[in-house]
């Protein structure tokens, strides 16, 4: 085993410091060291997006990033989004039935939050392209797209 290194990041607003091996993936750091199991591992090959979290506000696949690369960064997981009442994207997934089994949902919601930050007024096509890195085996995507468009409207109205 390689010697451990100390990694510190702000996760959902709370400072987290752990000694881990350099090869520790960000998703392992979050799930195993921080105990935040809301972030899922689907494919483990950077294809499905289930592991999507925000690093300094931008979506990344946490199965394809080292914890060490997020050292000193601000990370947001699905647990952090809903801390102060539901985020409009979570609200919209609930209202528009944007999930079935729920395994893709944490990643899908985090990808959508980042996407809407970059594209506050998306068309349906923009949403479909913007979520191309996230796979869902249940819904057929229809209600996910409806939910993201609805969240965009809600967020615009709240501004």
């Amino acid at each position: 085993m390689m010697p451990a290194m100390q990694i510190s990041m702000t996760v959902n607003g709370t400072a987290c410091t752990h000694d881990v091996e350099p090869r520790t993936l960000l998703v392992q750091f979050l799930r195993e060291a921080c105990g935040l199991t809301g972030t899922k591992v689907g494919c483990d090959t950077s294809s499905c997006g289930a592991c999507t979290v925000l690093v300094d506000g931008e979506s990344v696949k946490s199965c394809t990033m080292l914890g060490a690369q997020a050292d000193c960064a601000a990370v947001t997981t699905i647990e952090g989004l809903g801390a102060a009442g539901w985020h409009p994207v979570q609200q919209a997934f609930h209202e528009k039935h944007g999930l079935q089994c729920g395994f893709c949902t944490a990643g899908m919601v985090m990808a959508a939050v980042s996407f809407l930050e970059e594209n506050p007024e998306p068309t349906e096509r923009d949403v479909r392209l913007g979520l191309e890195g996230n796979l869902c085996r249940c819904t057929g995507y229809h209600n996910i797209v409806v939910a993201v468009l609805s969240a965009a409207d809600a967020m615009k109205a709240a501004k």
Binding site: E58, V60, A111, S114, G133
Partner: peptide
């Protein structure tokens, strides 16, 4: 290239 997550990194 890839998807948003890939292009962010």
């Amino acid at each position: 290239v890839g998807d948003n997550q890939v292009r962010h990194r």
